[in-house]
Amino acid sequence: MNEFLSKAGLDFFVAFGIVLGGSMIAGVGAVFMLMPPATVILDTAVRLKIWAIVAAIGGSIDPVRVIESNISAGLISPAIQQVCFIIFAFLGAHTATELVKLICKGAVT
């Protein structure tokens, strides 16, 4: 159980960091390119969300393969764990996206 929570927490924070860090660095780039930073930050956060989830769960099709092979073998617990890891990664990416929206709320009209 402890290993599961550690992996789930790590997936959450990896996805969170990818969205938050990527969108903030995009904002810095927007300043250099003379573009509106808040708009670029918001757009980047939304576009990075799915990629943050993919990166957090392993960056490939392997988690989906684990789900399929375990369900085929009749083992539900490992498949449920993989689904939970995906959910935690989604929650991390979504939380970061909402935080970016909150931070940029007054800057974009």
Rank of each mutant, 00 (worst) to 15 (best):
K7E: 14
R65I: 12
G17P: 04
I53S: 01
M35W: 04
A38E: 04
A52F: 01
T95Q: 06
G106R: 08
G22I: 03
I53E: 03
A26H: 08
A38I: 04
L48A: 07
F90I: 11
P78V: 08
R65A: 15
V19P: 03
S69T: 13
G27K: 04
L34N: 15
G92W: 00
V83H: 11
I25R: 12
G59F: 02
I57H: 01
V64G: 15
A15T: 06
D62W: 11
V64I: 13
L42E: 03
L91R: 07
V108N: 02
P36A: 00
F16I: 02
T97L: 13
P37K: 01
V83W: 02
A30T: 12
D43W: 00
V19N: 08
M24A: 09
F12Y: 08
A45R: 00
L20R: 02
S6K: 14
V64W: 09
V66R: 11
E68C: 12
Q82E: 14
H94N: 14
R47S: 15
M24E: 05
S6D: 12
Q81K: 13
V40G: 03
W51T: 14
V108S: 01
V108L: 02
E3F: 05
I18N: 07
L48E: 07
I71S: 13
T109L: 10
K101D: 14
A45C: 02
I61G: 10
F16T: 02
G22Q: 06
A38V: 01
V64A: 15
P63W: 05
T97V: 11
H94V: 12
G92H: 01
V28N: 06
S60P: 01
A73C: 04
S69W: 06
V40I: 13
I76T: 13
T39C: 01
I61C: 09
L99F: 10
I25Q: 15
I18P: 00
V83R: 02
F13G: 09
M35R: 02
T95Y: 05
G22C: 09
L5T: 03
V28M: 13
P63D: 09
F12V: 05
T97H: 10
G22H: 12
A73V: 06
I67E: 07
F88H: 10
P36C: 07
K7R: 14
C84K: 10
L48P: 05
T39G: 13
I86Y: 06
G106A: 06
L48K: 02
I61H: 05
C104M: 12
L91A: 15
G9Q: 12
I80G: 06
G74I: 07
G21S: 08
A8I: 09
V83P: 00
L102S: 15
F16E: 07
V100L: 09
A15Y: 06
L10W: 11
S6R: 14
K49H: 14
